[in-house]
Amino acid sequence: MDDTIFLLLAQDGITNGAIYTLLALALVMVFAVTRIIFIPQGEFLAWGGLTMAALEAGSFPGIAWILLGTGAIAFAMDLYDAGRRAGRGRSAAHLARSAAWNLGYPAVLAGVVWVLPLGALPLAVKAALTLALVVPLGPMVYRIAFQPVAEASVLVLLIVAVALHLAMIGVGLLIFGPEGSRTSPFSDAMLDVGTMQIGGHTLAVIAASAALIAGLYLFFGRTLLGKALRATAVNRDGARLMGISPAFAGRLTFLLAAFIGTLSGLLFAPLTTVYYDSGFLVGLKGFVAAIIGGLGSYPLAAAGAVMVGLLESFSSFWTSAFKDVLVFTLIIPVLLWRSIASHHVEEDE
């Protein structure tokens, strides 16, 4: 291996590592706030990439139907709950808000997408539309699948997450079809640094990831909403006593997780062909990274993600048939090390 190849592989590894970082951070966040191991994180990546591809092809994206349907189910559940708890002043306003988000928003958005000349739109608008179409599915999915069982054990939540993952794979096949797609990169520019060429898209991926990490840091460190999510992660009962309901925290967390997943999809789809079931493998790599951080540390998860990216890229050069095997084998020494090194953590208070 000479320097050029080394740098090329390193660049590749860091680019993928940046995307794994986003997924790993989302997994750590969702687990901290809701105790859900969010297996379908990767599906949001695949749906993001494939929705972008559909918009690029100029066809009406099938995901709009899914958004309409999912919203309708979420609203129906809110309606049922309100009926059961009738007689409380809050429920009317609550229902109106639910109707606006679950019925109104998808309908308006679907209408907009229907009339827009999709193929002719600039890249940034298509990316924004993709986010607008896919991200709201996050809180809806939380409402439908997780809110009714929010108090269940981690194992039950994991089983629900696996079921949701399988359901989303099936729905993905239905709306996107079995063919894969690759979207055009955010930038075709090439930057010469010494002997190395850095692609514009690579820079875009790294910049977007860095910006998102900085944004999350500010959100959790500076805003009251971010602090409310941290409070829920630290002490759910304490948070409830402040009026931060677990359902509210869950929906907000899933909104963020879906945003991160969809954005990673937009970044990932120009790098490789994305299929309806591509999300799982990518999400699993984010999961390995999150495990390296013990599902509890954001910096360690990010470092783990870059490590996974580099390991994958170099092993694909030396022994490409085994690249996934190597990446997932990484989890064994990590788990061994964690089980030896970790001590029993006392609960706060």
Binding site: K227, G238, A239
Partner: peptide
């Protein structure tokens, strides 16, 4: 009774 503070914050 258990105060339920956010210990790490």
């Amino acid at each position: 009774e258990k105060r339920e503070l956010f210990g790490s914050m």
